[in-house]
């Protein structure tokens, strides 16, 4: 198509619309541009502010000691502990969440589903400080009295985080299970398979990618969760590699909260904390991106 033709088409799109219409479109465009700029600005700003810490290179990324008082900013143990806490919580959430999702999607009577589903939706948003407080008052004391140690421990972190991850795992897995075409199920049932056999042999394999996506998303949530974890894991002064689940640990998020209060403005410490935030952001963003891609792929299939 020639340039002139293009101009003509462009024109009569505009001709039919009054000035008010065009103003509204411009206004909406400006507003959406500014929200996108905010998003970009946050990312760029954090990257730039974290740069001095990233410049430490291996010392930052692979250093074993995080001790601001002696200017040591190695994040390896923090990252490791973050994953220890996150993965443990995810395992617990999987054990409880996937069967619940299967139950909701396939076996639950309607009335029971109408009770469970809102509970799951409520659980998503319960302020984390409340859950953390509960953990501190009940779980930590229970662990201390039953298993010994301080009570503030990896184990407490696992359980509290599992409660918070659970609803994400359940909702997305349930959607994935429901998305499996009815025809597959009917075909299997028609061959004389029981409902349970149909679920394990036909439905779950087909919902695989969606269920996996829910776990990765759950992981992202667990890694990024702050207050509840902070309140129950103990946060030792100098992070170390734990040897038992009853020992206290420090994770990325809790380190930021605890130390942001006394960081010195403009110090390496400040840059290092921001860099921690960026590392955290990158981990979570990666996990989210994988989830998004997997869910899309699952839908296309």
């Amino acid at each position: 198509m020639g340039v002139l033709e293009r101009v003509r088409i462009f024109k009569f799109w505009k001709m039919g619309e009054s000035i008010k219409e065009r103003l509204i479109e411009k206004l909406l465009f400006l507003l959406s541009l500014s929200s996108i700029l905010i998003v970009f600005f946050i990312i760029v700003f954090m990257l730039k502010e974290g740069l001095p810490a990233f410049a430490l290179g291996g010392e930052f990324f692979f250093g074993m000691t995080w001790h601001p008082a002696t200017n040591q900013f190695g994040i390896l143990i923090l990252v490791l502990c973050t994953f220890i806490v996150g993965i443990g919580a995810l395992v617990l959430a999987t054990i409880i969440g996937i069967p619940t999702a299967v139950f909701l999607a396939e076996f639950s009577p309607e009335w029971l589903r109408n009770i469970i589903k809102p509970c799951v939706e409520m659980l998503v948003g319960i302020p984390s400080v409340v859950i953390g407080f509960f953990g501190l008052m009940v779980l930590v004391i229970f662990i201390r009295d039953t298993f010994g140690g301080w009570g503030e421990s990896i184990l407490a972190g696992w359980i509290i985080l599992a409660i918070m991850t659970l609803p994400h795992v359940i909702s997305i897995s349930e959607d994935a299970i429901r998305a499996v075409p009815k025809a597959y199920k009917e075909a299997s049932l028609a061959l004389g398979a029981t409902h349970l056999q149909t679920v394990t042999r036909v439905i779950l394999p087909n919902a695989r990618s969606g269920i996996l996506a829910s776990l990765i998303l759950g992981m992202g949530n667990a890694v990024g969760e702050t207050m509840a974890v902070l309140m129950v894991i103990g946060n030792p002064e100098i992070p170390f590699i734990p040897e038992s689940v009853l020992e206290p640990v420090r994770v990325l998020t809790s380190t930021i909260v605890i130390e942001a209060a006394y960081m010195i403005w403009g110090s390496t410490h400040q840059h290092a904390l921001i860099a921690l935030g960026v590392v955290l952001f990158v981990i979570v963003a990666l996990l989210n991106a994988i989830t998004t891609v997997m869910i899309r792929k699952g839908m296309v299939k």
Binding site: R8, K11, F12, M15, G16, E17
Partner: peptide, 11 residues
């Protein structure tokens, strides 16, 4: 109606 002068809303 495609001459570029026509108001699409009136149309």
């Amino acid at each position: 109606i495609y001459d570029g002068k026509e108001d699409v809303i009136q149309l």
